[in-house]
């Protein structure tokens, strides 16, 4: 593989994997704190699935000559992460977590339906696996958007507030990186405009049917290498144990 293409592929895989890892960590923060026991279990399951997806994708990075999954997750600083700011924002209230999860689950489904056809076989294989699990995630968050959007005036107010806050951050998922063209040309990754079109088909009718107003705010203008201070705090927590004894075996 051309070095330029390989580097673009590694960067893009890290972007997708980092989104999974960071959101998985945020969801795990609900363990022991969710509003009902069944949701405590559901969020723990979803977090675990997302970590599984991150491991699959980091594995591809390692096979391309990058670091292994543990090193990538536990020994990089914030400025080396390529996740969108959407997933690093604090978990907020239950409405915030469910709106974010719905917007992200729909993105993941739309993205991996295209990646399943990737000309780079390891990605196509991983995406087929990820899709199997993702359908359960989307069904879960889809139901919560409806339940809370059409629930009480208070639940609707919180959902709308969450949606208004999150909308500009979601846009970052669909902003192409500078090296995207080479990946699209190789048929390794889809053009994000096509993913966004599919995502809108899933998201917009459901938000509207759930009594929510779709904002028209512009996406934040930041590359995936720029982060909020929330990511530093998250990494300090997530990486603490691994970094306190890097030689430990488990």
């Amino acid at each position: 593989m051309e070095p330029q293409l390989q580097q673009a592929l590694i960067n893009r895989l890290l972007a997708v994997a980092d989104d999974e890892l960071i959101l998985g960590h945020r969801n795990a923060e609900w363990t022991g704190h969710a509003p009902i026991l069944e949701e405590d279990i559901a969020l723990a399951n979803i977090a675990q699935d997302e970590l599984g997806h991150a491991v699959l994708l980091y594995g591809i990075v390692a096979d391309l000559g990058g670091d292994d999954a543990d090193t990538l997750a536990m020994f990089r600083d914030a400025d080396a992460f390529r996740n969108v700011q959407l997933v690093e924002l604090p978990k907020g209230d239950w409405a915030f977590t469910m709106v974010r999860q719905f917007l992200y689950d729909a993105y993941e489904l739309a993205l991996h339906q295209r990646l399943r056809e990737s000309a780079f076989r390891p990605i196509a294989d991983a995406s087929a696996k990820i899709l199997q699990e993702e359908i359960y995630h989307l069904r879960h968050s889809h139901a919560w958007v409806e339940r809370l959007g059409l629930g009480t005036s208070e639940s609707n107010r919180r959902m709308q507030a969450a949606l208004d806050t999150l909308w500009p951050y979601v846009g970052q998922l669909f902003v192409e990186s500078a090296d995207a063209e080479i990946l699209v040309k190789a048929d390794y990754f889809p053009a994000l405009a096509s993913v966004q079109a599919h995502w809108e088909q899933i998201v917009i009718p459901h938000l509207e049917a759930s009594g929510l107003v779709v904002p028209d705010t512009a996406p934040i203008d930041a590359p995936r290498t720029v982060h909020t201070a929330h990511l530093d705090a998250l990494l300090a927590d997530m990486q603490l144990v691994a970094r306190s004894d890097p030689e430990a075996t488990w």
């Binding site: 069944e38 279990i41 559901a42 399951n45 675990q48 359960y136």
Partner: peptide, 9 residues
């Protein structure tokens, strides 16, 4: 169905 998610994945 009470929950799509249970005690294991």
């Amino acid at each position: 169905l009470k929950n799509s998610f249970g005690s294991t994945l």
